[in-house]
């Protein structure tokens, strides 16, 4: 059952991701991205990581993509913007970069000693994931966590300063 669901949603995620780059209309591309995010979050659920799956939904699908959609809507609401890039040089560069990324990931996963497939989660034992994640974040890796939050704070302040009206 879980395996079937995994293949369904993995295919959906890949189809959505392909649709993002193949769609000609920006709005449809953005909606395809939403579908990809949802499918990925369901895969997290299947692995038993409810907390991360829900954060994926709230942050990416629920907040960031809505902002994307609003921006697309404000740019040019009715005439469809067509995305086109026919320059062969760019296509070649994209293929090269993609192949490079694939190579890096392939070697990384090939060398990794960790078990990538999560142990099957018995039904009814889906509790404690938020707690165990919190234990790791706030006890084991407290310093890196705080450093990352300072980084985000700096980014937010930068955005505020960029958006602020200049008083001459």
């Amino acid at each position: 059952m879980q395996e079937v669901l995994f293949y369904i949603f993995a295919l959906l995620a890949i189809a959505g991701a392909l649709s993002v780059i193949l769609q000609k209309k920006t709005m449809y591309a953005a909606i395809s991205l939403v579908i990809t995010f949802m499918a990925v979050s369901i895969i997290y659920f299947l692995l038993g990581a409810q907390f991360i799956g829900l954060l994926q939904l709230i942050i990416y699908a629920g907040a960031i993509m809505v902002l994307f959609l609003i921006v697309i809507l404000l740019l040019d609401p009715f005439s469809e913007i067509f995305l086109r890039n026919q320059s062969l040089a760019w296509v070649g560069l994209a293929v090269l970069l993609g192949a490079g990324l694939f190579g890096i990931l392939y070697t990384a996963f090939g060398q990794a000693p960790v078990e990538i497939v999560a142990p099957p989660v018995p039904p009814g034992e889906l509790t404690g994931h938020t707690q165990s994640l919190a234990d790791v974040l706030f006890k084991q890796y407290l310093l890196p966590f705080e450093v990352i939050s300072i980084l985000i704070l700096v980014a937010i302040l930068g955005a505020v300063i960029l958006a602020k009206k200049r008083i001459s």
Binding site: L54, A61, V66, L126, T127
Partner: peptide, 14 residues
């Protein structure tokens, strides 16, 4: 759900 409140927020944001 173990993270029920987050589920609420996610579905409401959709």
């Amino acid at each position: 759900l173990n993270a029920g409140i987050l589920y609420l927020i996610a579905m409401m944001s959709f």
